[in-house]
Design a protein around this nucleic acid. Sequence first.
DNA 1: TATGAATGAGCATTCATTCAT
DNA 2: TATGAATGAATGCTCATTCAT
Lengths: 214, 214, 214, 214
Amino acid sequence: MPTKRFKNVDQDRKNKILDAAREEFILNGYEGASLNNIIRDAEISKGSLYYYFEDKADIYMTVLENAMQEINMKIGGIAAGEFSDDFWNDVESYCKKTIHITFENPEIIKLFRGLYYLSTTLTKPESVAEFYNTTKEFTSEIIKRGQNMGAVRKDIPLELLVNIIFSMGEAMDLWFLGRWNEFTHEEIERVPQIYTELFRRVAGTEPVKGDMKK
Amino acid sequence: MPTKRFKNVDQDRKNKILDAAREEFILNGYEGASLNNIIRDAEISKGSLYYYFEDKADIYMTVLENAMQEINMKIGGIAAGEFSDDFWNDVESYCKKTIHITFENPEIIKLFRGLYYLSTTLTKPESVAEFYNTTKEFTSEIIKRGQNMGAVRKDIPLELLVNIIFSMGEAMDLWFLGRWNEFTHEEIERVPQIYTELFRRVAGTEPVKGDMKK
Amino acid sequence: MPTKRFKNVDQDRKNKILDAAREEFILNGYEGASLNNIIRDAEISKGSLYYYFEDKADIYMTVLENAMQEINMKIGGIAAGEFSDDFWNDVESYCKKTIHITFENPEIIKLFRGLYYLSTTLTKPESVAEFYNTTKEFTSEIIKRGQNMGAVRKDIPLELLVNIIFSMGEAMDLWFLGRWNEFTHEEIERVPQIYTELFRRVAGTEPVKGDMKK
Amino acid sequence: MPTKRFKNVDQDRKNKILDAAREEFILNGYEGASLNNIIRDAEISKGSLYYYFEDKADIYMTVLENAMQEINMKIGGIAAGEFSDDFWNDVESYCKKTIHITFENPEIIKLFRGLYYLSTTLTKPESVAEFYNTTKEFTSEIIKRGQNMGAVRKDIPLELLVNIIFSMGEAMDLWFLGRWNEFTHEEIERVPQIYTELFRRVAGTEPVKGDMKK
DNA sequence: TATGAATGAGCATTCATTCAT
DNA sequence: TATGAATGAATGCTCATTCAT
């Protein structure tokens, strides 16, 4: 439980630490990250680090939570009230926002990839798993809403659906990320449609007839 | 390049080494795996390990190649000739075989997850990437066949499609793996259908009206 | 860069480390020296060693700098002001001092021999070379002074002259070192003359008529 | 005692081994040299290496002896009969030959530098020392001849003189080697004169008035 | 003679963590 | 709160040498 002590730290210092840590984890993955590099870049002492955090995993989790929060703040209000009654339209506009953010902060993907790896490896995976779930809850909420509106199928376990959607998103992120520069502006504009079309095919109640040329 | 020296090693010894290494990599991932543990379990000397392999990555790759080969042997002949003219039917029967094997050797998934992580992290990722690609080529071939038969859409880049399919498979594997024991025999029987239905939704040319209750 | 951390270490501990390191480098040369031996003899942990120093080369350089400083402190003021206007007389008195010190601390020669070897071998030779040059600069200064006074020839490149003088000194050191015990007190007294006479022959502007019986 | 077994080896094989070993020792020094590299390059087995040689030092010594022999063959007849009665003239022509060879095979210097280092470090230095002495004997003979002719001073112990001359030669070799390319053809022609002049100054019975502009 | 598999001690270096101040 | 010195186990890897065949 690091949080209490760390929460009360001066904001600037807090940011410096989180930035340094994030950078390090992105660069070297979880195992590869060195606490020494972090304290060097954050300009704090080893002692402080261990005063704020329980251990390496704790730092990592904190970085993650923070990154997530940041993202959510940027995506912001896809609060219930803002949804229209055209579910898949909403999804598309959500995708549009998300994709923008993701591709403006591509390192974040690397950060979370570490998580995925960790969840099966770490000695104290509970907290990681917990975080992982929290992250998925948001997607879960959206999908449930779709189900209530009759737009999303109910014949497949919700959690499975979430996982699949998640993985698909990750796969597409990765693919587009690798060739982002090769795309024209117009093509980029159509990326959210592709995401949505594929999500809809998998999860939708009604057949989708897609037809998109690259 | 397991240096051919390893190939000539006494079969028992070879197995002992590969088993120990696989176990270690599964347990701790690539970075976390310790060569010391491996030689302890395999009951060989440090020198021997480095006589057989170039470095840690080389051991890992060898373990992987071996696992892959093992799997392929078990899946066996989905050679071209065995395909019928009902593409999605073929896919389902392929899924059936694959799922069986995967779920009988669930650790293998963990093994390959390391790969995924590695491919973006390792200092010498070429060989890893190469292997990763080889692995994907198989899926790629199947999908191309589907395209030729008019069963698989062509309006999405092949590689992207492969990646998505791959990720979906991984996600489903993971999900089912976690609750394999909770399923009745009948439900298990229907799993390949679920895989296929979802693949078909994503990749198929014709709308799919799925309707499967959990 | 002994990282200033080392500078602040308790004097006793510092000495213990430097002594152990010097001993080890003298005994086994640079490549042959084992950090394990050093920490064993210095009774410190591996971690501490790497807390104080960057790497093996850093330790070696620190030992060297220290030895150099020690020597310079003992030789002390051959500051400009102390020179008379009889150049070769000054050289002889400098030799007298130096020889005494060298032969009272003969191991030091071995220490620096390592340097010589290193400067051509090491992967990071810059710092070594730098140090080596610094060391030679002193001789260089003296020679230049001799040239200004008209006592030292100018028809040979300065740097070449320095190198030759240096090597001659080394050769004589080595030779006398090996038979120091065989000499009578009187003979020892005349050693600086021999050094000077030979230096003068090589570097002097005027013919020298030496005549010294062993 | 490697020699007997190694001597009887097929000439080609022998050369291949010696070449590979020499290359390795030149490249990495004695400590740094790896027997594995040697057998790889020589295309022989580990077992053979240890059948021919006692240990690493033995290989090194053999390489050295061979190199020395090679040099001597190239320098060739400065046999007694070929000496004129102008000693220093003979020395100059000897220098001319030697310098040519040295600067055509500059790696050899590196090879012998290892020796110098070794002689104080190695666990079995006797053989090294012995070799070192053998090497010096040649110089020694020449100097003695000079003494008999009255051209070389006798007031300094012969062995000391040899060592000094040797060191001076080494120092000059090194210096010229580093700037060989910067010299015009004419300057190169005068190098042996410089060597000789300096040797003569140090060892000669009569004053030398040198005057050479760079 | 010749091979090459096998060894294990040794290497420099990095690490997360502790704790006295 | 904050520091930074101290730790020692662990890491991947290389080495010269031995020896059964």
